[in-house]
Computed example of a mutant assay.
Amino acid sequence: MKWFFLAFIALLAVTGNAAIFERISLGRALGGIAFNLFTLSLILIWLASYFSDAPTKAQRLVLGHATLMLAAGIGISRIGINMALANSCESLIFGNKPNSFLSLFATHLQSLGYCRELGFGVFIFGLFMGYPSIRLFVGIKSRSSGPPYLKY
């Protein structure tokens, strides 16, 4: 079963990158970064689940979860930026689930003309989701660079 998951992750990465990078633009590049971080997080979680001992497993699971949350934060921030720039709530209005809370809320704000503000709110929520992961990666880098040099 473990090799099936690896094959699924590889297939997901190939088809996702092919779809994202069909045309090159800044928005697609941010989406590609978020998607590739997502696949990297799946690989880290897969490695931790099947090939790690206890201390390494915990480290890889933490890194996998942090990478997953960073990818989600980047993706949600990208949606918020697109909504704010386009002044459109269409990204949050779902055609197949028109009675969901998010669709009803976005439709209501669209009727009031507050799509740009909703986009900024979604952007800030994405930053809120990605911030702990960024702090974790910065903390890991500062601890791994060794002790600070003393100046006399």
Score class of each variant (00 low, 15 high):
residue 110 Q to F: 00
residue 133 S to P: 05
residue 135 R to P: 11
residue 95 G to N: 07
residue 114 Y to Q: 06
residue 101 F to M: 07
residue 110 Q to T: 03
residue 132 P to I: 15
residue 124 I to H: 10
residue 122 V to P: 03
residue 89 C to I: 03
residue 88 S to C: 12
residue 105 F to R: 07
residue 100 S to R: 02
residue 128 F to G: 09
residue 126 G to C: 10
residue 72 A to Q: 09
residue 77 S to E: 01
residue 131 Y to L: 13
residue 136 L to Q: 12
residue 100 S to F: 04
residue 111 S to C: 05
residue 86 A to V: 14
residue 84 A to K: 09
residue 135 R to N: 13
residue 86 A to K: 04
residue 84 A to Y: 14
residue 99 N to D: 15
residue 95 G to F: 02
residue 85 L to A: 01
residue 74 I to W: 01
residue 73 G to M: 05
residue 116 R to T: 14
residue 132 P to Q: 13
residue 116 R to C: 13
residue 76 I to T: 02
residue 119 G to M: 03
residue 125 F to W: 09
residue 79 I to K: 13
residue 83 M to T: 07
residue 111 S to I: 09
residue 98 P to G: 11
residue 86 A to E: 12
residue 78 R to H: 05
residue 69 M to Y: 15
residue 85 L to K: 06
residue 70 L to R: 07
residue 69 M to T: 14
residue 106 A to T: 15
residue 96 N to C: 12
residue 100 S to K: 13
residue 134 I to H: 01
residue 79 I to H: 00
residue 104 L to R: 14
residue 130 G to W: 06
residue 119 G to F: 07
residue 68 L to K: 06
residue 76 I to P: 05
residue 102 L to A: 06
residue 121 G to L: 10
residue 127 L to T: 13
residue 104 L to F: 02
residue 113 G to L: 14
residue 118 L to M: 12
residue 96 N to R: 14
residue 79 I to T: 15
residue 122 V to D: 01
residue 133 S to Q: 10
residue 134 I to C: 04
residue 82 N to C: 04
residue 118 L to H: 11
residue 79 I to D: 09
residue 77 S to W: 02
residue 70 L to T: 07
